[in-house]
């Protein structure tokens, strides 16, 4: 595996390639400001890029260079500008044992409508969860009832929603890990994702 070359070498390669880079792969900073890694594997081996803004030439992956911002702009402008609105995730919490939203969560519903409006051709998933009080089968049903309750609220929207899928995870997907029979308000929730 080869890591990013020194800036000097990168500059040299960048000069030789400027204007003629054909197929290449660029690592970008995430929208949250973090940077991951990307690896290219081909017959000649593996090349790792771990610094944002650096790129590998795919015909010769050992060549790592830093493309000019201008080049990225001219090559990827259209792909970048057609990025869809990022998904929004809302967590709604319930009073103990039933399908009544907490007051704070009920107040979030209009915000969910706003988010749906900001997502053209929105598809929405609603996943119900419970805490571990009671038996698993009943919790499965309760989580489902919670999710259906929320989906009914969301159905009132007349927006362009392509799909609304309701799922129950019962007590099997705890946000806060607890032992069985533990009342945990943070686990009594419905997760709404607007894509």
């Amino acid at each position: 595996m080869k890591k990013i070359s020194t800036p000097l070498l990168a500059l040299a390669i960048s000069l030789t390639l400027s204007g003629c880079a054909k197929s290449y792969l660029v690592l970008m900073e995430d929208h949250d400001g973090s940077t991951g890694k990307v690896m290219f594997k081909d017959a000649s081996g593996e090349t790792l890029i771990d610094q944002a803004g650096y790129a590998a030439v795919l015909s010769d992956a050992k060549n790592i260079f830093k493309p000019e911002q201008q080049q990225i702009e001219s090559d990827f402008n259209r792909a970048l500008s057609s990025e869809p609105t990022r998904p929004d995730i809302f967590l709604l919490y319930f009073n103990n044992g039933g399908t009544v939203l907490t007051e704070e969560s009920a107040a979030l519903i209009p915000k969910i409508f706003d988010a749906a409006a900001a997502h053209p051709a929105a598809d929405i998933s609603v996943i119900g969860h419970t805490d571990t009080v009671g038996d698993a089968e009943k919790n499965e049903k309760l989580a489902n009832e919670r999710a259906i309750q929320v989906s009914h609220l969301l159905e009132q929207t007349t927006l362009d929603v392509k799909e609304l899928v309701v799922t129950s995870h019962g007590e099997k997907n705890l946000l806060v890990k607890t032992a069985d029979e533990v009342a945990e308000p943070k686990n009594r929730r419905v997760e709404v994702t607007i894509r």
Partner: peptide, 19 residues
């Protein structure tokens, strides 16, 4: 997959151009 290899990701954002 690209015509000459495979891109693997480690939690990230990338751009790729294939000519």
């Amino acid at each position: 997959t690209t015509p000459t290899g495979v891109i693997a990701v480690r939690g990230t954002r990338f751009l790729v151009k294939i000519e």
